[in-house]
Amino acid sequence: MESTNKSLLRLKRVEASFNSFIDKMGRVIAWVLILMIFNVLFDVVMRYFFNNSSIAMQEVEWHLFSILILFGLGYALKEGSHVRVDFLYDNFSVTTKAYINIIGTLLFLFPFALLIIFGSYEYVMDAYTMDEISEDPGGLTHRWIVKAMIPAGFIFLLFAGLTYILKHIIIIKEAKV
């Protein structure tokens, strides 16, 4: 009894520190979004009032958008924002829900994320070795960086998935106590 409590406590501490990292990432993408809003506005203003458009600044827009959507995946998992079809789910007990989330993360989320991470290795490497740059004159260089956000975002999703599993293991353990 004593030892299960201790291990539960340890588990909770791990989960809390993982979660706080995910939250920090959430705040980062929140400000990336705010930056993106002003970036888009800046480009419109430049075009209409100064007749001046910078391809590089326009490309920064979607670079920010990419960070927002790719790292948002993991953050949204932690926050429980990914929609479910819940007409059955809502009637399940807390432990059943926890089992569904653990098994779902292991069997649905992990394979999907892993396939994308490994599948994008060559994709990113190609851009890196060829020193790929923007197709448009005056655009951004080092295209591999933004392409590398794909595996990076999904690695973050894996991490969030792991934390999500911990969370539901704790729920199950607590229900047993």
Binding site: H82, R84, V85, K97, G104, L109, F112
Partner: peptide, 17 residues
């Protein structure tokens, strides 16, 4: 599979795999 209630996005991913 969706009706189990795991988030839709990843259920689709799993089905596709």
């Amino acid at each position: 599979l969706l009706s189990i209630g795991y988030p839709v996005a990843f259920s689709f991913g799993a089905i596709s795999i």
